[in-house]
Design a binder for these strands. Structure first.
Lengths: 222, 222
DNA sequence: CGTCTCGTTGACTGTGATCAAGCGGGGTGG
DNA sequence: CCACCCCGCTTGATCACAGTCAACGAGACG
C-alpha cells in the first residue's frame, strides 16, 4: 500500500517533485510551500491537480448550509488529498501550521491511467482508501459519544505517526472539534478528564503523552 | 454516469445477467433472489463478487464494538454495492423486504480493468461516487439535528426515486434510525411533527407524500 | 380471535451545547 | 527587560435536544 503513495524524487529537488502511482511509475510534479491557515484549493475551483503532503499538515473542509464547518480529514506527510473524478473540487483544503505540498497535474495521472492498468488500479485503491476513511468517520460520528470520539482520535493519530506515546498535535482544539462534530469546550473537557484519569498527560495543550493505551482502546470501543 | 452502472441483459434472462462497466462492455453475471432480511454477504467474508440491485432494496451495515448497528447506506434498483479492493468485505449487506440482485465475479471485472482503461475509469468513478455518498453521510451525522436529518433523508429518497411527491419507504423506522444515527422514537416524532406542520402526509407509516418540498429543503439546510 | 411485530405517544433523564468568565503563554512594543 | 495584550484553552453554570423507559395502538399473520 505504502508504495502506491506519491514519493519524492529526492531531497535535491526543491521546485520539482515526482509522484509514483505504482512502483516504477514516476510523474513529474511541483512542490509548494504554504504558511499558517493558507488555502491550498477551494470548493468549486477546477480540480486541476492532485496533492501530496511532503511536510506539515493539511485539513480538508466543507461548510454546511448554515455556515458551520466540518473537517473531513487531516492529512499528514505521505498522504494524498484533493482526489476528484468530477471537474471541480467538492471541498476545500487548507494548511494548518504550514505545509509543504507536492502537486501533480491530473492530466498526467489520467494519461498514465489510460496507458497502464497498474496505474489505474493504484488510483482506484487511493479512492478506496479515502472511502474507508470516510465510512470510519461516519461510524465514529454516528455511534460514539464525546469522550469515545476523542479517544479514537488520539489512537488514530498515534498509529498514523507511528509514535508509541508522544504526540505533537498540529491542529487546534477548534480543528479537533470540527472534525469530531463536538464543541471546543467538550473536546477540552474530554482531554482534561483523561488527564485526571491518568490515561494521558498534557504538558501543554498541543502535546499529548499516552500513559495507558489499553484504557484508551477500552474507551474507543463505544 | 448512469450508463456506467450495471445494466440488465434483458427481461428474458432469469439466471444469467450482464453488467456493463462502460458502454459496450458487458460482463457475464448471475441473478439471485433474496427474501426478507436475508444476508447477501457478511463482513469478513471473501469479496468474490460485486453486486447490483435489480429490484427491491438492500442495506449495507456495520456493527460497533459494543454491538450497536450502523447502516452505511440503502441501495435501490440500479445501485452497485459490495465494492472492495481488499480481499474481504469490510461490511455486511442484507435484503430489506426482498431483493433481486445481479452478481458478477470480481475476477471478471479485474480482467476487464486490466485490458481496457475505460473500464478502469468506470470502476474508479464507482468508488468515487461511494466516497461522495459517505462524505455526505458524515456531514449529515456531524452537522444536522434530528428533524434536519429526517428531512434530508426524505429529500434524498424522492430524488433517488425520481418521484415528485409519493414515496414508498422500503425500510422500517429502525432502519432509518440506524442510518441517521437516531432512535426509532426520534425518527417517529420527526415524521409526526412534519405531518402536523403539513409538510408531509402519512397515509400509513411506510408511505410518505411530500406536500411542501420547499419547507423540506428549508429544514434540510441545517 | 389472539398474538406479535412495528409504530406512535408521553414522561423523565442525561449528555453535550451554550453562555460566560478566567487563565496562561507567546508575541509586541515601550 | 518587563508590561501588556491577544488568542487559544480551560472551567463552571445552565439549558435544550435527543435518548431512555414505559405504555399503548394498529396492522399482519396464523
Amino acid at each position: 500500500m505504502r508504495d502506491l503513495n506519491f514519493e519524492t524524487a529526492g531531497a535535491a529537488l526543491s521546485v520539482s517533485d515526482c509522484i509514483s502511482l505504482a512502483p516504477g511509475m514516476a510523474l513529474q510534479g511541483v512542490r509548494m510551500r504554504y504558511g499558517r491557515n493558507a488555502e491550498i484549493f477551494g470548493a468549486g475551483e477546477k480540480a486541476e491537480y492532485v496533492y501530496r503532503v511532503v511536510s506539515g499538515a493539511v485539513r480538508t473542509i466543507r461548510f454546511s448550509a448554515d455556515g458551520r464547518r466540518q473537517i473531513l480529514g487531516f492529512h499528514l506527510p505521505g498522504d494524498i488529498f484533493g482526489l476528484e473524478t468530477g471537474a471541480r473540487h467538492s471541498f476545500s483544503a487548507e494548511s494548518i501550521a504550514g505545509a509543504e505540498v507536492a502537486l501533480v497535474r491530473r492530466s498526467l495521472i489520467e494519461a498514465a491511467v489510460a496507458e497502464d492498468p497498474r496505474a489505474a488500479l493504484a488510483l482506484t485503491q487511493l479512492f478506496a482508501r479515502e472511502l474507508h476513511a470516510a465510512q470510519e468517520h461516519a461510524l465514529v460520528l454516528g455511534l460514539k459519544g464525546a469522550s469515545e470520539r476523542v479517544a479514537a482520535f488520539i489512537l488514530h493519530l498515534t498509529d498514523r505517526f507511528e509514535a508509541n506515546a508522544d504526540l505533537d498535535l498540529p491542529m487546534s482544539r477548534a480543528d479537533i472539534a470540527d472534525y469530531l462534530a463536538l464543541t471546543i469546550e467538550t473536546v477540552s473537557r474530554a482531554f482534561t478528564q483523561m488527564e485526571r484519569d491518568r490515561i494521558i498527560a498534557l504538558p501543554c495543550a498541543r502535546h499529548v503523552i499516552v500513559r495507558d493505551r489499553e484504557a484508551l482502546e477500552l474507551m474507543e470501543a463505544a
